[in-house]
Design a protein around this nucleic acid. Sequence first.
RNA 1: GCCUCUAUCGUCUAAUGGUUAGGACGCCAGGUUCUCAUCCUGGUAAUCCGGGUUCGAUUCCCGGUGGAGGUGCCA
Length: 449
Amino acid sequence: MSDQIRVRFAPSPTGSVHIGNIRAAVFNWLFARHEGGKFLLRIEDTDLARSTKEAVDKVLDAMAWLGLDYDEPVVYQTHNAADHLAAVERLLSTGHAYKAVKESVDPATGERKSGEVVLFRMPREGRIEYDDLVKGHMRKKAEDTQDFVIVRSDGSPVFHVANVVDDIKQGVTHIVRGDDHVENTFKHVKIFEALGAPVPKYAHLPMIVNAQGKPYSKRDGAAFVGDFKERGFLPEALFNFLALLGWAPGDDREIMTRKELVEAFSFERCKSSPARFDLKKLLWMNGEYIAAQPPDVFKAELSARLAAAGLPSAPLGCGLDELVPPVQIRTKTLSDLPGNCEYFFREDIAYDPAAVEKRLHAPGAKERLLAFADAFAAMPDFSAETTEALVRAEAEKPTPDGKPVGMGALVHPIRVAVSGRTEGPGLFEMLALLGRDRVVRRLRAAASL
RNA sequence: GCCUCUAUCGUCUAAUGGUUAGGACGCCAGGUUCUCAUCCUGGUAAUCCGGGUUCGAUUCCCGGUGGAGGUGCCA
């Protein structure tokens, strides 16, 4: 065998892929790519009624979405059941394990169980130690450990043996996982030794906690990878953000390409304390990634979402290409699409009630709208430049009290009249993109709102 | 309770036995603009507490406190 690095992501398919779990996958992947090693995927589907085909697909989907490609065929833990039991036989024959009748109560269900199980024998004195690439030297007194079940009374092996045996079988050199596994590691180290296998290196990553600093739960909303996809986050943005949770390159870089992340990654730079998930920062980062998308890529996203919303594939008054730049810069998540530019695609636009009240019901607003409708209709040339010149000229004119009308008093009502809302691209750019006829029509219609 | 780990702005983090403790997000203010977004400028804000070692500690050590994990015939 070579001394190539081999790591694995070993999720149990129990529904959706948790954001904390996928982060472990991200770090495994980053480490493997940095070292030029292999990144493996093992589905730990042992004995769980919950591990369905759908659940496995969700894991696969989440990984594909984030671009976490693995280097060897997926291993399903249940397929290795014979190896697990064979290993238990060896442990039994070498005295590292023994059978015993045990009673227990499932803390979750309250169910009582009794029967013969196989227990792994932990040392009674001395210390169990291992070096953690993130947490440093770990040690635990043997007296603080207990023998533990490795085969249930129904004959099925539990996680601890299955996990270790599979890691041996797959030649895993580095185990990178959440630090909820640190205690298990004291057990696993002993199993590796009892099986005569080299103990792999360990790297335990800090947990990700929610905005309240508490462990993530389903109630936190976006707790699953799929949620982020649905909410319009780009995988590159989430990937970048996740990489920065518990790790930093050491310089001031934050927005980093996958390549840069791979190059800079190391466990020495991993933190060892829990990190909070700051959605605001992810939102910012996502906006940065969207703004940086090639226009064609953004256009494809927009098109897909227009179709999904049942809107036409092109704006009513211009080409889609013209609309892309002003919309792209204002999009923070893909879910903003097409809502933030809908009025370019449909005639029956929705008016923001507050905006109507403030801008269209202002004194003199209706008269101005009608006047501008007439003026726009009569212009020889209707463009951003000509409409702006006209509005600016109008803004210079004095009101009865002698002061100039001002741009605000004109621009705001026009904007609300043609778009229904208070924000958006520059007004004159918007008018040109909408087209003269539509602008004139909307101005007149808005005057009677 | 016991065990393992952990602690820098609100959040993510950088740095160091001697620094004005840096950056980013957020927030606030100003500039630009017709709005929003962008962009530019500035500001706010941190070394958990108590001992010890040291000329000097945020950094090293000990204790406390807070936080996380574990303490299953779950994974």
